[in-house]
């Protein structure tokens, strides 16, 4: 069960149970909907971008523990970040969970991920990678004015 406890860490279970910023954002000026048709995960990410920075971010929808916790923690990580910082965090996060990180250990850019590193266990569960990245793909779509994305 060790890989399993790596996947379902307490902090992930906590965010699944009590997702943060889990609401519709009335002041949103960017939003996008994300689907994972394979498992039925479905969420909307709302952004209030002002002067190129994430002033407010929230999400709503339904999904598995991994996708919900990933969305919840993403909203915490991105608040106050510039669009560019958000995009580069997306890249780092994707690299960590999909195992396709191009960053060498020496550079250790994953430092920027902070507590998002709790998702590193997802890498051992290839079919669950899309659960963790769905909120990030959706956020990326919202930043770039795409309304709908689907991961499969």
């Amino acid at each position: 069960m060790s890989e399993l406890s790596e996947l379902y860490q307490q902090v992930i279970l906590d965010h699944n149970k009590k997702p943060r910023n889990f609401r519709k954002l009335e002041t949103a000026n960017h939003s996008a909907e994300g689907f994972n048709p394979l498992c039925g995960d479905h969420l909307t990410v709302y952004l209030n971008l002002e002067e190129g920075a994430v002033k407010e971010i929230s999400f709503e929808g339904s999904g598995c523990a991994i996708s919900k916790a990933a969305a919840s923690m993403m909203t915490q990580a991105l608040k106050g970040k510039s669009k560019q910082q958000a995009e580069s965090l997306f890249k780092e996060f994707h690299g960590m969970v999909a195992g396709d990180s191009v960053v060498s250990d020496e550079e250790d850019a994953s430092d920027g991920l902070g507590n998002l590193k709790v998702f590193s266990g997802v890498r051992e569960f290839p079919v669950r990678v899309k659960c963790a990245t769905l909120p990030w793909h959706t956020m990326h779509a919202a930043l770039n004015n795409q309304a709908l994305i689907s991961t499969e």
Partner: peptide
């Protein structure tokens, strides 16, 4: 509990 999480734990 989402069925996907159930499936992953059962698979283990």
């Amino acid at each position: 509990i989402h069925p996907h999480d159930i499936g992953t734990i059962l698979d283990q």
